[in-house]
Amino acid sequence: MAKRSFLIPGVDKRLLIKDSIKTMPDVTRRRFIAGGASLGALTLLTGCDVVDSSSADALLAKISKFNDAVQDFIFNPDALAPTFPESAITKPFPFNAYYDLDDAPEVDGEAWKLEVRGLVDNKKSWTLPELTKLPQFTQITRHICVEGWSAIGSWTGTPLRDFLKLVGADTRAKYVWFQCADKDGYNSPLDMRTALHPQTQMTFKYANEILPRAYGFPMKIRVPTKLGFKNPKYVVSMEVTNEYKGGYWEDQGYNSFSGS
C-alpha cells in the first residue's frame, strides 16, 4: 500500500512541513522528511495503512466541525476565566510564534491604523492614540497554548464588545475576523459570542507597559476563553462577517473553536 501523507485538504504541504520541522530535533527532522507525516504508529503496528489516509482525514475534519458545535453549545457567555494576583504572573512571559523573535513584525505605531470592515456602521480606521483614549481595564489571566504549556500574564486594554458597540457592529453576525502583520499573513476568526465575552480585550499594554514587539505591538486581541493561537498579535484589521474566512492555523487543522 502506498504511503500517503496525513494532511488537511487545502493545506500547502511544504509550508506546513517547513513550519513543523523547525521545532524538531535534527534526527527527527530527517526521519520526518523521509517518511512523510504518515499515520505513524498505526502503520507501524499493522505493517500497512489500516485506514485510507484521505478518508481518515475527511472523517477527522468532520468530527472537528462537530466539536466546534459542541463547544459553541457548552460555551457560557457569562463564565469568566479565572483571574490571578500579580504575584502569580509568569516571568519572563514566553514569546511564542511560528518564527523567531528577530522575525517578529516591526509595526510603526505612528503610521499604524486599525482598519474596521464588514457589517459595521462606521468603517473609519483608528489610529493608536484614538484607540488608547478608550477606557481600559487590566486583567491577569492564564494563557493556554495549544501545545499544552500555559503562562499567567497581565494584559490591559479595552473590552472588544465596547469597541464593537462603538463602531455599530452587527453583533448578530457570526464572526469577527482579524488580520495581522505577521510574516506569511496571520489571520484568525473569532465567533461573535466569544467576541462579546466581557474578558475579550483589545490589548495595548502588557504588565502595565506599552505592548512590546514580542507580545504584539501595537495591538493584540486577548481572549482568555480561547487557546493562545486564537489570540492574534500585530492586528491590522478586523472584519465583522457572516462568512467563515478561515485562519492561519485553523486551515492547517487546529480546531477552529478551540475554546477553553
Partner: peptide, 9 residues
C-alpha cells in the same frame, strides 16, 4: 497524527 494538529484531531 504526524504533527501536533493531527494528534489533536
Amino acid at each position: 497524527g504526524g504533527w501536533l494538529g493531527g494528534g489533536l484531531l
